[in-house]
Amino acid sequence: MSDHVNGAAEGTVANKVPVTITVNGRTHRADCEPRTTLADFLREDLGYTGVHLGCEHGVCGACTVQLDGSTARSCCMLAVQADGSEVTTVEGLAEDGQLHPLQEAFWNRHGLQCGFCTPGMLMTACELLADNPDPSAEEIREGISGNLCRCTGYQFIVESIQEAAPKMRPAT
């Protein structure tokens, strides 16, 4: 069996590929070109514009989403690859109108200025706290070092994550 999709037919607009993907609990089916990145697909085709593009080459982290339970740079994946996956974007963090503890903490501690890095920071911080529920400031800095922020100088982001940590720890 083979699963081949033709996207580069000479001189024509490339054929589109059907992709089924669950984003923040909702299943979407849409067609996209093979060359479309997951980031562009989420933003342009599905309207999840909370996914931001700061570099499109894997360095800034603004496009970070959760993919099947761990973080991924959505600019470094093709949408076709995410077929059948479950994705969480920043839009899926708050539930029932209640901000996620990290969102609340970023708000309290001024962990954002322009907000462009924020979606990626939040997704990364979620994973960081899941892996290490009580990180030191240095561990937080290391943990978010794959997410560039040009505005904050990071200090208030570190404090925000520290503030959220106890609220996200599983009760023991």
Binding site: M1, S2, H4, V5, A8, E33, P34, V80
Partner: peptide, 21 residues
């Protein structure tokens, strides 16, 4: 910064991948 167009093949086995390559 958008890729040039290409075909996409989702390999179903190692042999399939090698054949496609």
């Amino acid at each position: 910064m958008k890729a040039a167009a290409f075909d996409y093949h989702r390999a179903t086995s190692v042999d399939d991948a090698i054949q496609q390559l």
